[in-house]
Design a protein around this nucleic acid. Structure first.
Lengths: 105, 105
DNA sequence: TGACAATATGCACATACTTGCATATAGTGC
DNA sequence: GCACTATATGCAAGTATGTGCATATTGTCA
């Protein structure tokens, strides 16, 4: 793998690597939502939420369509939920390993 | 999912979301390496490489053991390679979708 | 057209991340 | 102990990211 290939991967992961954006993706995995439905789930200013959504849209993880004066957001690539599962696996593995060290004391 | 749960996931993904760290993980997926073996693969200062490794170790993705005066690094949770594949899927899906739009013109 | 709801953007500030340089620490072999 | 190799850390500067506030834009409905 060369630097450019690593960079495009990093850009996608970076777009996912924020608690608010993870909450957004998680919510969208349960179905399409407009901004006003997402707002109560994330403790953040409306403009901030709009910006986080823009980041997810820029990398193509989320897409949008208009419905009246609402913009409906859609999780375009649900495969990224696997990246979250993978993060959980890392956590679990790390805790297990530390427990082992603890027992060894 | 609550904010705290999203945050721990974000911290793991953030640790992966850098081109140099992706190159490191990619190299380690082929077997354990010391810093001196990784250095030529990533175009960065030795101290910078050391810092990137520290970030990966902090979240438990990479572990280390000493061998003489070398520190050997080990990819503790190879499952994160799936996160990279997932990033590639996002890219591919995005390109396909844009191609469709192109054809529609 | 005007009032209103939903969403996006400009700006300014704070915080976090990355990097190189110099220097410190840890281990090896003489 | 000394010279040497491998790796880590303090510091300072540059860059990027996240946030709230105010304001702009887009669409609806009367």
């Amino acid at each position: 793998m060369n630097y450019q290939q690593a960079k495009v991967r990093a850009d996608i992961l970076k777009a996912l690597a924020h608690p608010v954006r993870i909450l957004i993706v998680n919510a969208l995995s349960g179905g399409d939502r407009c901004v006003c439905e997402l707002a109560p789930l994330v403790d953040i200013d409306q403009s901030g939420l709009s910006r986080h959504l823009a980041i997810l849209k820029r990398v193509g993880v989320v897409t949008e369509r208009r419905d009246g004066n609402k913009v409906i957001h859609h999780l375009q690539t649900p495969c990224i939920l696997r990246a979250f599962e993978c993060a959980v696996e890392v956590l679990r593995s790390d805790i297990e390993r530390k427990n082992l060290h603890l027992k060894a004391i």
